[in-house]
Design a protein around this nucleic acid. Structure first.
Length: 671
DNA sequence: AGGAAACCTG
DNA sequence: CAGGTTTCCT
C-alpha cells in the first residue's frame, strides 16, 4: 500500500459516503478507469442492474466470509464463496475476466463504439470487484495486472491504486464502524458474551463496507454517464438508442417513477448534445437520489438483519441473554408482524415498490442462509428505542401477592390460558373494574381480593386494558414465546371504551344486567341505602369500591356522599324524634329503650332504606340504631340540645360504629 | 331528593 | 382554598 499516492479521493469519498455523495471527488480516479481499462462487451441488461447483482454477490461473499474484516486475504474466504462468486460472474457476464484481457490488448480508440460500452462495463465491473475485494476478482485482478503490466504501466498503476484502495477501505471501515455503528446495537449489547459482540461488530463492519460499496457504485455510474455525454455527438442513432435503453432500464430499475418515464421519452426525441446533457444530468441526479434512497433502505435493513442474526445466533447457541439484552431483543422478536405491515405501508406503497421488491429479493438471496426473511425490513427498526417489552412491572409474576398498589400492578394474563375477551368484558360489565377477578380462571390471585386502595385504579385504565386485551389476546402471533405478558407492556394504542359502547354491549348481552354509565341510577340509590345498614359514614374510597360500575368523577362522588348525608339526616332525625318521643313517653331509663325489628323506629328506617323489605337488615344495624337512640336520649335528657352543635358529639360516636360492607356488594349488583 | 348556605378540614 | 359535611329549606 503506497501511502504516498494521493488517494484522498477514495478517502474523502469514503468519508462522505454516509452523508453526501461527492462525485467530483471520485472523478479523477474514475476517469482513469474509464480510459485505461480494457474493453468488454455489453451484454443485455443494464449496467446498473448487473452491477447491483454483482454487488449483491459481493455482499454475499462479504457476509459469509467476512472478507473485509479479516485483512482482505484471499485465503480468508471460503471456497464456496469463491465458486459462487465466480460462477455467478461467469453466468452473468461471460466476458468479464477473459474479455478484460483479450480486448484490453487493443487501445480504446481503435475499437468500435459498442466496444466502448463494453469497456465501460468492464471498468465498472473491475472497480466493483476490486472494491468488494472478492477473492475471485482478486485472482482476475492479479492476472490482469500481470498482463497489463506487460502492456501498459497505467494499468499497473491502476491496479496498484486499487490494491491500495482495497486495503484502505477496511481501515476506514473500522474507523467509521467503531465510531458510528458501535453505539447502535452495541448499546443494546451490554454483553456478557464476547462472541456475540464480535459477531455484532463484524456485521456492523460488513454493513459499512456494503454501504461504501454502494456509494462508490453510485459515484462510478455518475462518472460513467458524465463521460459518455460528450460522446453522444459521434454516435449514430442506434447506438444512442441503445444507450438510452440502458439508461431507461436503469432508471426504471432504480426509480420506476412515471415522471421519469416522461423525461425519458422526451429524451428519446432529443438529438442535440445540450438536450442530452440536460437529460443526462437529470438522470444522474435522479439515479443519485435513487441510489441514495436505496442505500439508506438497504443499509437500515442490513443493520436490522445484523442485529437479528446476532441475537438469533446468540439464542441458537444457547447463550443466556441477560435481561437487558432480552429487553432489546424482544422488540425485534415481536416486530415480525409489525414489520410486514410497515413494509406494506411504507416501502411497497412508494413509487419505488419495484425496486424495493427487487432489493428485498436480492437481500433474501444474499441472506439465503437465514431462515428469517429480511424482506420486510425497510427501516432501522432494531435501532428504534422502543418501550421495553420487559418493563419492571412485568417481572412481577402473576403469583406474587400485591406488594405494590393495585394501580401499579397490571392485570397479567397468561397467554397459555385460553381466555376470551368476552369473558373479561363480561366480567367488567357485570361486576365492574373494581370487582375482583377471582371468578375468572385466568386471573392471578393477586387480583382476588380487592382492598380499599384498589379504588385508585381508574376506570379508564381498566377500560383500556380490556380493550387491549380484547384486541390482542385472542390472536397473538407468538403467545408461547412471550409467555405471561402484561397487557400494560404491549405497546398498543390506548383505546378508550366509550360508555355508550359498553352500555350497548351490555344491553345486547343478557348476562350483563348492570350498565356502566356516567350517572347514578335508582339502582345505585337502592344499593347505597342498603349499604347504609352497614356504614353510615362511607369514605369515598369505599363508595368507589362498592360502586364499580360507576364511572366516578367529582360530581358522582359528591352525589354519592350527598346521598349518604341525606341518609344520615333522615336517620338522625328519626333518632332524635324517637328519643324525644321516649322522653315524652316518660321512659326513665335508657335501658328501657331498645330497638328491635318490631320497633316503630326500625320500621321507619327499614321503610326508608329497604322499602321493598327484600333485604335482611343486619343485627348490627339494630345495635347501632339503639346506641344512637340512647345517645340522643341522653343528650336531650341532659338538655345538651341547647347547644347548636350538640349532635356532633353523637355523630362522633356513631361514625365509629360503622361496619364493613359485605363483599357481595362489590360483586353483586343487588338489583 | 336536592339546592343553598354555613361550616369544617386538610 | 377545594372539597366535604351539616343544616335548613323546599
Amino acid at each position: 500500500m503506497n501511502l504516498s499516492l494521493p488517494d484522498q479521493n477514495m478517502h474523502s469519498s469514503g468519508e462522505g459516503c454516509l452523508e453526501d455523495d461527492k462525485p467530483d471527488v471520485m472523478l479523477p480516479c474514475f476517469r482513469r478507469n474509464m480510459y485505461d481499462e480494457p474493453l468488454a462487451s455489453y451484454s443485455n441488461g443494464s449496467i446498473i442492474s448487473q452491477l447491483l447483482r454483482k454487488t449483491i454477490h459481493n455482499k454475499r461473499a462479504l457476509d459469509e466470509s467476512h472478507f473485509y474484516l479479516s485483512s482482505s486475504t484471499a485465503a480468508d474466504s471460503g471456497p464456496e464463496d469463491q465458486s459462487s462468486v465466480s460462477s455467478k460472474d461467469s453466468a452473468v457476464e461471460a466476458a468479464s475476466p477473459s474479455g478484460h484481457v483479450s480486448t484490453g490488448a487493443s487501445p480504446e480508440g481503435e475499437h468500435p463504439i459498442t466496444d466502448h460500452l463494453q469497456a465501460k462495463r468492464a471498468r465498472v465491473e473491475n472497480i466493483i470487484r476490486v472494491m468488494a475485494g472478492s477473492p475471485n476478482s482478486r485472482q482476475h485482478g492479479d492476472s490482469e495486472r500481470s498482463d497489463t503490466d506487460a502492456r501498459d504501466s497505467r494499468e499497473a498503476r491502476e491496479a496498484y491504486r486499487e490494491n491500495k484502495r482495497k486495503q484502505r477501505l477496511p481501515q476506514h471501515q473500522e474507523h467509521s464502524a467503531a465510531g458510528q455503528v458501535s453505539r447502535k446495537p452495541g448499546s443494546s449489547n451490554t454483553d456478557n458474551c464476547n462472541s456475540k459482540d464480535e459477531e455484532c461488530h463484524k456485521l456492523k463492519e460488513q454493513l459499512h463496507s456494503m454501504q461504501r460499496l454502494l456509494r462508490q457504485l453510485q459515484e462510478k455510474f455518475l462518472q460513467v454517464y458524465n463521460q459518455e455525454d460528450p460522446e453522444y455527438d459521434n454516435r449514430d442513432d442506434t447506438e444512442a438508442g441503445a444507450e438510452r435503453d440502458v439508461l431507461e432500464q436503469e432508471s426504471r430499475y432504480l426509480s420506476g417513477e412515471d415522471d421519469f418515464e416522461r423525461k425519458n421519452s422526451s429524451r428519446m426525441t432529443a438529438e442535440c448534445k445540450e438536450r442530452m446533457k440536460v437529460v443526462g444530468y437529470l438522470v444522474h441526479q435522479r439515479e443519485s437520489q435513487n441510489l441514495q434512497e436505496t442505500l439508506k433502505q438497504e443499509l437500515s435493513r442490513a443493520v436490522n438483519d445484523c442485529v437479528d442474526r446476532v441475537f438469533k445466533k446468540a439464542s441458537s447457541t444457547g447463550l443466556d441473554l441477560s435481561p437487558p439484552q432480552r429487553m432489546c431483543a424482544s422488540p425485534e422478536i415481536s416486530m415480525g408482524a409489525d414489520r410486514k405491515s410497515q413494509q406494506a405501508g411504507s416501502a411497497l406503497d412508494q413509487p419505488q415498490a419495484e425496486e424495493a421488491a427487487a432489493k428485498s429479493r436480492s437481500l433474501e438471496y444474499y441472506e439465503s442462509s437465514e431462515a428469517q426473511s429480511p424482506q420486510d425490513q425497510t427501516e432501522a427498526l432494531s435501532l428504534v428505542v422502543r418501550k421495553p417489552a420487559a418493563a419492571p412491572l412485568s417481572s412481577v409474576t402473576p403469583t406474587v401477592k400485591r406488594p405494590y398498589p393495585v394501580h401499579q400492578t397490571p392485570f397479567q394474563f397468561n397467554y397459555s390460558t385460553p381466555l376470551h375477551d368476552s369473558h373479561i368484558l363480561e366480567h367488567l360489565l357485570k361486576y365492574g373494574p373494581h370487582s375482583n377477578f377471582g371468578g375468572l380462571p385466568c386471573m392471578p390471585p393477586s387480583m382476588d381480593r380487592t382492598s380499599p386502595d384498589s379504588v385508585d385504579l381508574p376506570w379508564d385504565t381498566i377500560a383500556m386494558r380490556s380493550k387491549v386485551t380484547s384486541g390482542h389476546l385472542g390472536h397473538h402471533p407468538r403467545p408461547s414465546s412471550l409467555g405471561a405478558v402484561t397487557v400494560d407492556n404491549l405497546c398498543l394504542p390506548h383505546v378508550k371504551i366509550e360508555c355508550g359502547e359498553l352500555q350497548s354491549m351490555a344491553e345486547r348481552n343478557p348476562y350483563m344486567s348492570l350498565n356502566i354509565q356516567e350517572g347514578l341510577t335508582p339502582s345505585h340509590l337502592k344499593k347505597a341505602k342498603l349499604m347504609f345498614f352497614y356504614t353510615r359514614y362511607p369514605s369515598s374510597n369505599v363508595l368507589k369500591t362498592f360502586f364499580p360500575d360507576v364511572k366516578f368523577n367529582r360530581c358522582i362522588t359528591s352525589q354519592l356522599i350527598k346521598w349518604f348525608s341525606n341518609f344520615r339526616e333522615f336517620y338522625y332525625i328519626q333518632m332524635e324524634k324517637f328519643a324525644r318521643q321516649a322522653i315524652v313517653d316518660g321512659v326513665s331509663d335508657v335501658k328501657d329503650i331498645t330497638v328491635s325489628r318490631d320497633s316503630e323506629l326500625f320500621r321507619a328506617l327499614n321503610m326508608h332504606y329497604n322499602k321493598a323489605n327484600d333485604f335482611h337488615v343486619p343485627d348490627r344495624f339494630l345495635e347501632v340504631a339503639e346506641i344512637t337512640l340512647h345517645e340522643f336520649y341522653n343528650a336531650v335528657s341532659a338538655a345538651k340540645d341547647s347547644d347548636p352543635s350538640w349532635k356532633k358529639a353523637i355523630y362522633k360516636v356513631i361514625c365509629k360504629l360503622d361496619s364493613d360492607v359485605p363483599e357481595e356488594f362489590k360483586t353483586s349488583s343487588y338489583l
